[in-house]
Computed example of a mutant assay.
Amino acid sequence: MKRQPDLLWILVILFGLGVVTTGYAQSLWANKTDAPIEIAQQPQPFKR
Score class of each variant (00 low, 15 high):
29 W>M: 01
1 M>V: 07
8 L>S: 13
9 W>Q: 13
11 L>N: 09
43 P>G: 01
8 L>N: 11
14 L>K: 05
15 F>Q: 02
28 L>K: 06
32 K>D: 15
45 P>F: 07
38 E>N: 06
47 K>S: 15
22 T>I: 04
37 I>K: 12
38 E>K: 13
17 L>Q: 05
3 R>W: 11
11 L>Q: 11
28 L>Y: 02
31 N>K: 14
3 R>I: 08
13 I>M: 08
36 P>D: 09
17 L>K: 01
27 S>Y: 01
28 L>F: 08
7 L>S: 08
2 K>C: 10
20 V>D: 00
40 A>Q: 15
48 R>H: 06
37 I>E: 11
46 F>D: 00
36 P>K: 09
23 G>E: 02
19 V>I: 12
34 D>L: 07
41 Q>P: 05
33 T>Q: 13
30 A>C: 07
17 L>C: 14
26 Q>T: 00
1 M>D: 15
25 A>E: 00
22 T>F: 10
21 T>C: 11
30 A>M: 08
23 G>V: 00
10 I>S: 03
39 I>C: 15
23 G>Q: 07
46 F>W: 05
30 A>T: 05
20 V>S: 03
23 G>P: 00
16 G>T: 07
19 V>S: 03
16 G>Y: 02
32 K>R: 06
28 L>S: 00
9 W>H: 06
40 A>L: 14
20 V>L: 14
22 T>D: 01
32 K>Y: 07
17 L>M: 06
12 V>S: 15
10 I>H: 11
43 P>T: 06
42 Q>L: 15
17 L>A: 04
34 D>Y: 10
9 W>A: 09
